[in-house]
């Protein structure tokens, strides 16, 4: 356990970072949250996890229920006001905070939303552009890894090279690329249940492409996409380990991949 280690003195002032765990990591895969905490601490940040956090409100927002999304957004904006940075292990939730919250408000609340937007970072981008990780102290990862770019991260957060760069630096892994990296995997929030047949076809395209790379691990930065892809991979009986990129970067002895049996 890390908090048993004696605390080292640091000369550089620590960055005060609030972690937004995301609802999916909180509920489905806490290990992503712990990996994010470890990575941020390793990058010299003081990490706080505000207790009142639940979810960014995207389900309501994307389905057109703005009346439901606005109070959720207000609560998130208020909660994160005391911190220098808000870091989120998801491009989609980061996009919600930084791009879509400001569009929900006018006047004072818009200013507050813009202030939050300016300090909100997706995890891999934060670890490359704001608080770089120190060099790793472990041997390179012996695996063939492919990477799925979540659309919101790719297009709303400019995340493309950051996770690849981190994987190379921290794990010595060169990503074996999927064939159409910029095409959606078919998750799309509630879309995946509104059009299940098409959503599944899109997952199959991704998974077939992943298998074709020869990869045994499929990584990504958004749990939504990953749960969808892992769920489909399990149903098809594919031998493909699906994980959030933070799990691999944190280098903790990983438990089973998403949807894999214990032990």
């Amino acid at each position: 356990m890390e908090n048993q280690k004696p605390k080292r003195r640091r000369t550089r002032p620590r960055r005060d970072v609030a972690l937004m765990v995301t609802c999916l990591a909180d509920l489905m895969r806490p290990s992503v949250g712990f990996a994010a905490v470890r990575l941020l601490e390793r990058a010299g940040c003081r990490v706080t996890v505000p207790e009142r956090q639940t979810c960014c409100g995207q389900p309501a927002y994307n389905n057109g229920d703005v009346n439901a999304a606005v109070p959720v957004a207000r609560a998130v904006i208020e909660m994160f006001e005391p911190y220098d940075y808000v870091v989120i292990p998801s491009g989609s939730c980061a996009g919600m905070l930084s791009r879509h919250y400001p569009a929900l408000f006018e006047g004072e609340w818009r200013d507050r939303a813009l202030a939050l937007a300016a300090k909100t970072w997706e995890l891999t981008r934060f670890l490359t552009e704001v608080a770089p990780l120190p060099p790793p102290k472990r041997p390179p990862l012996d695996a063939t890894v492919t990477y799925h770019d979540g659309c919101a991260g790719l297009r709303e957060q400019d995340i493309k090279q950051q996770p690849r760069q981190l994987l190379l630096q921290q794990c010595g892994v060169d990503v074996s690329e999927l064939s159409q990296t910029e095409v959606c995997c078919g998750f799309g929030g509630t879309f995946c249940t509104k059009m299940p047949a098409l959503s599944t076809k899109m997952a199959d395209d991704k998974l077939n492409s992943a298998v074709a790379t020869g990869a045994n691990i499929l990584l990504g930065g958004d749990l939504g996409c990953l749960l969808h892809l892992a769920g489909r991979a399990r149903r098809r009986g594919l031998e493909l380990e699906v994980r959030h990129v933070a799990e691999i970067l944190a280098g903790t002895p990983p438990g089973p991949g998403i949807g894999d049996p214990n032990g």
Partner: peptide, 24 residues
């Protein structure tokens, strides 16, 4: 059914992050 018709539902690890984090 919209999910599980064509996909498995990955089992949660068990225990939420917030719970475990507070306990730790």
């Amino acid at each position: 059914a919209g999910w599980t018709g064509t996909r498995d539902f990955p089992a949660p690890e068990g225990g939420t992050f917030m719970q475990q984090y507070r306990n730790r």
